Computed example of a mutant assay.
Amino acid sequence: MRQAENRVRELEVKEQRARQRARAEQSWKIQPRRSGETAMLHRGGCGLYSAQLGFINRQEAIIALDEPDIEARQICNPQTGLVDG
Rank of each mutant, 00 (worst) to 15 (best):
Glu25Phe: 08
Ile75Asp: 11
Gly81Ser: 03
Gly45Cys: 13
Cys76His: 05
Ile62Pro: 01
Pro32Val: 04
Arg19Gln: 14
Leu65Met: 15
Met40Cys: 05
Arg58Asn: 04
Ser27Phe: 12
Thr38Lys: 04
Ala18Lys: 04
Gln31Ala: 02
Gln20Ile: 12
Ile30Pro: 04
Arg73Lys: 09
Leu48Asn: 11
Pro68Arg: 09
Val13Tyr: 12
Gly85Arg: 11
Ala51Asp: 11
Pro68Gly: 05
Tyr49Gln: 09
Ala18Glu: 15
Gly54Tyr: 01
Gly47Thr: 15
Glu5Leu: 05
Gly44Ser: 11
Gly44Pro: 01
Gly44Asn: 06
Ser35Met: 10
Gly85Leu: 01
Asp69Arg: 07
Trp28Ile: 05
Trp28His: 08
His42Lys: 00
Ala24Lys: 06
Leu41Arg: 01
Arg21Trp: 03
Arg23Lys: 15
Lys29Arg: 11
Ser27Ala: 15
Ser27Leu: 13
Ala22Glu: 15
Gln59Lys: 02
Tyr49Ala: 02
Gln31Gly: 00
Lys14Pro: 05
Met1Ala: 06
Glu10Ala: 15
Ile63Lys: 03
Arg17Glu: 13
Arg23Ser: 10
Arg73Tyr: 14
Ser50Val: 05
Asn57His: 12
Cys46Val: 13
Arg19Asp: 04
Gln26Thr: 06
Asp84Gln: 11
Gln20Cys: 01
Asp69Gln: 06
Ala24Pro: 01
Ala24Tyr: 14
Arg19Met: 12
Asn77Ser: 14
Ser27Met: 09
Gln20Lys: 13
